[in-house]
């Protein structure tokens, strides 16, 4: 309510993407819908995206947040690539969050790679949308300050 107007002049835009070969899209689709219901603009990329495709989509769509769902166990590998691609494209200011079947021991590794938050199985939709909203607001503030 107290956000400056420029922050909410258009709805926050989130890319929801699945990287790698895994087809478990239940979570990604539920999150995409929850975000839409919460007023976000959502671009769902579908499955089997490469890190490069996702980074490009985020840049082209001028996304406020990137949400990645991975249930294949290949999260470290793919997120590392995604972060590299975002950097290459000068888009590493777009915050990245990750969800999926991720062992607790990998949470710190993902955060070291620059991931802002990691959602483990059983996470509530409310917390996920709250975190994404906060990250989107922060980014818009920063972009405005530049």
């Amino acid at each position: 309510m107290s956000s400056p107007q420029y922050i909410e002049e258009r709805p926050f835009k989130v890319i929801v993407a699945k990287i790698g070969l895994d087809g478990h899209d239940r979570g990604a689709k539920v999150i995409a819908r929850a975000l839409k219901d919460a007023g976000f603009e959502v671009v769902y990329t579908g499955i089997r995206q490469t890190p490069e495709q996702v980074a490009r989509a985020a840049v082209e769509e001028d996304a406020d947040v990137i949400g990645i769902s991975i249930l294949s166990g290949a999260h470290i590998h793919h997120i590392q690539r995604l972060m590299e691609k975002l950097k290459e494209m000068g888009a590493d200011d777009i915050p990245v969050v990750v969800g999926g079947t991720i062992p607790v021991i990998d949470v710190d590794k993902l955060k070291e790679l620059g991931v802002k938050d990691v959602f483990l199985p059983g996470e509530s939709l409310r917390r996920i949308t709250d975190v994404i909203r906060t990250l989107a607001e922060e980014r818009r503030r920063k972009v405005r300050l530049l």
Partner: peptide, 18 residues
């Protein structure tokens, strides 16, 4: 594994890390 499930060889770029 996923590469086998979708018919991709282990040396295909899509299989990397999987």
């Amino acid at each position: 594994d996923y590469p086998t499930l979708v018919g991709v060889d282990p040396d295909d770029p899509m299989a990397e890390g999987e």
